[in-house]
Design a binder for these strands. Structure first.
Lengths: 285, 285
DNA sequence: TCGGATTACGTGCACCGTAATGATC
DNA sequence: GATCATTACGGTGCACGTAATCCGA
């Protein structure tokens, strides 16, 4: 076996053209590099250079050796990178959630249960979330329905129901309930980070306009000081209180009422046993 | 960069199961190996083992690392091997010849012209010799005809003519010349190392039997003391003298008269310039 | 009690850098 | 004289081995 730093030095020499330049680049002395190259030749049992007293050049074998060396160095580099990536993956639990509201508590739960692990959460409205679970991009997914497929394991968690909030003067403000299609064509204030609700709204109200807001505080301000209808959920109302001067009317579409499901691959069911137990316990309360 | 011997030691540990066994296999002490593995983990920035006080086992990352390590080691090994092969190839001139008689002088010529090079000669009756030249298996070929193809360069060298030697009592012994087909069906003494002549004899005399002899002296003995027809050439007669008690009759088939051609790839013409000059000089004498 | 892993500690040598030499432009 | 490679030489860090310790079967 020949140590890889010799190949690294060979590649450096090929890059620089002279020993002195390469030595400088490698932060070693010129004699050290000279000896290294001699040692490399010796260990290979092959001559790599033409020596013209005051000039060192690669011979044909040397050129080939450089190509091989570069290849080997790349190999090792990528191998190390992959190992580090694998290790990082192994110590992080990636959660993909279609629901924004559940994320903080869920992340807290995971950090407590899996000390030392990094918890990474992502909010996404992407309906391919179960697919991503299979691909290993996420280990846990919070879905708005029980996923299809024998390879998934899931338990129900919180339910959430969609409401539209209207100013009292709004023509529909005295309704007991509304279908989304009744609201189509209007202009809404909408928070951009609402996961799967976004997709539902756009599907059911193709003619509606949405004034997307990145900042939750700005959104609150606008809701309080404009007549645009906006959306909220029972979960939000319960946790942050009702918005004054607004009437919250339940949405009657069946899709507007969801039960979130905490999901993982069957193969990882055991690994996340504690999580599911916690959810079940909390849910039965 | 991580030195490759660390990966080697990791692989050894995976093979042996314990540090002590691996240390023994590697001819180093157990503490040295223990520290090496710690260093490997440190340099990778990744933990590879489960440490149970008195038992060291690979964790999931470790298993992966072992697979990668084995791969890298194989890579390096094969790279070194290929370099050595390439170097050897570079310092040897491989000659493929269809003619046995020319080989010794030709080999001598090459050694003199290319000092320090290894000269490897092979006798073969294989008609694909030009193909092999293209593939780089040989650098020079001695063929019994000028090869077809723009990519070849060749100069004519010695000519050789085939004779059959018969005992005086043989019914055909008084012929001035014979075609091979006239001799078909008989039993011949034949030297096994005669290159392309072999193929010619078998093709032209499909019903003949050949008593193949590996040993040239044994063959001489048998020729001198039996009535079996045998083959010789003007070149052989000229260099080793006539066989007593035998009549040499020329073979009249046009293929029985050949001019050998020293051939190389056009691309290597310059490299072997001296050889061709020598041949031309000798030939014009 | 033995086998295995880690820690502690002293040592040697492999490799480095500086200096000197040789060679070429 | 400047640049570049090699050889000579002295110093040192680092990885090694021995010994000791700890732990578990």
């Amino acid at each position: 076996m020949i140590e890889i730093h010799l190949f690294e030095q060979l590649a450096a020499f090929a890059d620089c053209g002279t020993l002195s330049a390469a030595a400088e680049q490698l932060h070693i002395s010129q004699p050290a590099l000279s000896r290294s190259m001699q040692r490399l030749e010796e260990e290979l049992g092959v001559s790599l250079f033409e020596r013209q007293k005051s000039r060192l050049t690669l011979n044909e074998t040397g050129e080939l050796a450089v190509r091989y060396a570069r290849n080997l160095l790349l190999q090792e580099e990528s191998m190390i990178q992959q190992l580090r990536d694998f290790d990082r993956k192994r110590r992080t639990i990636c959660v993909g959630s279609c629901a924004p509201v559940l994320i903080p508590d869920f992340a807290t739960l995971l950090s407590r249960l899996y000390e030392g692990m990094t918890i990474s959460t992502e909010l996404t409205g992407d309906p391919r979330l179960p697919e991503y679970l299979r691909e290993g991009r996420y280990q846990i997914a919070i879905l708005h329905e029980k996923p299809e497929g024998e390879d998934f394991y899931s338990v129900p968690m919180e339910s959430e129901h969609l409401y539209v909030t209207l100013p009292p003067v709004h023509p529909l403000a005295d309704a007991d309930g509304l279908y989304l299609k009744d609201l189509d064509g209007q202009t809404f204030l909408l928070y951009s980070q609402i996961g799967f609700w976004d997709e539902l709204c756009r599907r059911k109200m193709p003619s509606a306009r949405f004034l997307l807001q990145q900042d939750i505080d700005v959104l609150g301000e606008l809701v309080a000081n404009s007549a645009f209808p906006a959306f909220t959920t029972d979960y939000i109302i319960q946790h942050t209180g009702e918005v004054t001067d607004r009437i919250a009317i339940p949405i009657l579409d069946p899709e507007a009422s969801v039960t979130y499901h905490c999901t993982c691959l069957q193969a990882e069911k055991a690994r996340f046993r504690q999580v599911f137990e916690h959810i079940r316990a909390a849910h039965s309360r």
